[in-house]
Amino acid sequence: MARVFIPDHLASVTDNVREVEVMASTFRELVQKLDERFPGAAEAIMGKVAVAIDGDIIHDPFLDPLEADSEVHFLHRIEGG
C-alpha cells in the first residue's frame, strides 16, 4: 500500500487526516481512491498540485506508476525562473 501524506493545504479535503494508505498502481488510481474516501479530493488535486513519488517531483502526475511501498507527497507546483 502506498503511503500518502496530505499537506496542510489539502487537509480540509481529507477532514484533517494527514496520512493515509492507499492500494493503487498508478497516480491516477490513487487519486480515484482518495476521491472515493474523501469526495472532492480529485477536484482539489488533479491538474492543481505537483507530487513527489519516492522523492521524484513530478509536475503533471497522472499515469505515473506506484510501487507497493511508495511514498506519495503532494506539493505546490514549483516552476522557477
Partner: peptide, 14 residues
Amino acid sequence: VEEGSTATYGPKFK
C-alpha cells in the same frame, strides 16, 4: 539533510 532525510516540504531526499 542527506540522502534519506525527509525534506520540510515532504518527500525524502535522494
